[in-house]
Design a protein around this nucleic acid. Structure first.
Lengths: 299, 299
DNA sequence: CGCCTCTTGTCAAGGTGTTGTACAGATACT
DNA sequence: AGTATCTGTACAACACCTTGACAAGAGGCG
């Protein structure tokens, strides 16, 4: 996932939410980026550069000073490190499978500090998309599988969910902010698995959207009301279990007449019939966020 | 494991709840910290330094003289610590009623950035205890009242809950860490109001406890299992509705024979009969955390 | 008790470091 | 032509630095 379409500074600025002046300042002061140049001298950025800028922004939002944030963000992508002292030890490479295994191990043992440490390290080193799609989503799958095989108690599942929910909602801070299209996210009545929906929200946020999160167990009437108040570009309803969505078919078709509507989650893919006019998101949250974002741009 | 994220003095101050002046004084007088310096001469602290400052604060809160506290804190490097902010960090006046009103206004309007900004300001100005007891708890009450009067839609309530839950769980990061007595926190089956329980957990954590949070809708069997695995000093079960607790009476009495057990929340205070040997926490979460913490110390 | 000293948290003044933003004049791209 | 971007410089707001001082409380001592 490296060089596809080189971005000029304006496009990078829009996608990352950082002004062009500031991007140049970060390059000059901290060597955060080393864009190639067009024949005429314009900066050309890669998608990796975009991720690095986002990582830097995140570190700043967490309270680090710009210089320190840049040092961390620079370290993240091994591709172009300006001054790499050869004897350095630290710099853990990003190993998603190891991270996931560590996460499973610590949460099973009710080891909150351990799990948080794993997440800390991941956040320092990985981009948000990578973290979500390569660690969090597989982790949730593994959790679900072990749960079905009876290898996990309710207590362990609760502990892990609450821990992860806390971290993800922490990353979600400010996701209602900005200028992009708005999306309302909710689970249908009775459905309480909202982690996948949060991941989807984060991925969508990362593509410039604004998120209004209603979360689990939202009555359809309330959803309609919120949609009227907010007038979102997209409504997403997510369910892990098919039986939470099935009773809503007619209401969903009705909703789809006035709003762009999507249903998501395992419950959406196992539905017998898809309500007319409703987008069905069956893939993993990050991929689907990518797709939805593209659709909205062209549509 | 020791993630290196160099903090400047302001950030260290915010995270530790100790003013920058005092941090410099402690360095000068007791050599508590030996921060590296940036090229420009700014102090750069590590996360270990943060732990050391917290440890020092804790020793002072326990009555030690600053010099003794420093000597102890200097010696110990790993583990440690609750957060006991001894003073304010800023000079902006703290107006809890205004803050609560702002919070109500912004969350009702689905204004996520606005609400987050209010919380940001509060966190910069108030101690955790003050924030919880003077803003969050009254806010939750107001939410409940408006809800009963039908002035709030489910969507608004969900939106507000999710936003607040995210922030509180963010503050909860690392609450399983350290050396203090452990408490398991859970809601009984069917009960999904966990915000009060999170507040209680934060207040207890602020008094040196370690928290294991299972959250809403936890089957009693799982609770028992977790209690066996963790061997906590206290088990807390919280419910907003009395009918979620009532069916458990006999199981609770049984649990109380092997563990110190407390029930909390509005549902606990409206129970017809209190199970034998069970502590009943009917006051606000912060006050009750104070009480429980004292009990455990003397008992 | 009054007086003194030590401790400890806080504050102020005057200077430096850091960082986001702005502008001007020139050049590149479409 | 018109927009986007380039380089270089400047600047204002804020965070931080050092030095020095001060006030409230604890405790010793005549």
């Amino acid at each position: 996932m490296s060089e596809d379409a080189p971005l000029r500074i304006g496009e990078l600025s829009r996608r990352a939410g950082v002004s062009p002046e500031l991007l140049r300042a970060w390059e000059r002061r901290y060597d955060l980026l080393q864009p190639t140049r067009s024949p005429g001298g314009l900066r050309l950025y890669s998608l990796d550069d975009l991720e690095r800028v986002r990582l830097m922004s995140r570190h700043i939002a967490e309270g680090l000073a710009a210089r320190e944030a840049a040092a961390l963000a620079r370290r993240a992508s091994p591709s172009a490190e300006p001054t790499t002292p050869p004897g350095r030890v630290s710099t853990t490479p990003f190993d998603p499978e190891l991270a996931r295994a560590e996460l499973v191990r610590t949460t099973e043992a009710f080891d909150e500090p351990g799990a948080q440490a794993v997440l800390d390290e991941l956040l320092a080193v990985a981009t948000l998309d990578a973290l979500l799609s390569q660690v969090v989503v597989p982790y949730l799958h593994e959790l679900g599988e072990r749960w079905e095989r009876g290898e996990l108690s309710v207590a362990q599942e609760h502990f892990a969910s609450n821990l992860l929910r806390g971290r993800l909602l922490g990353l979600a801070r400010g996701w209602g902010n900005g200028e992009g299209p708005r999306a309302i996210l909710a689970c249908p009545p009775g459905e309480r698995h909202d982690l996948g929906l949060i991941v989807f929200g984060l991925a969508l946020r990362n593509r410039g959207w604004r998120i209004d999160f209603l979360g689990s167990d939202t009555p359809t009437a309330s959803l309609v009301e919120a949609a009227r108040a907010i007038q979102p570009a997209l409504l997403v309803i997510s369910a892990a279990a098919q039986e939470h969505l099935a009773p809503l078919q007619s209401r969903l078709e009705e909703l789809a007449r006035t709003h762009r509507l999507a249903i998501a989650g395992a419950g959406a893919s196992s539905l017998d019939s898809t309500p007319a006019g409703v987008l069905v998101l069956t893939g993993d949250p990050v991929t689907e966020a990518q797709r939805v974002s593209g659709l909205a741009r062209t549509g």
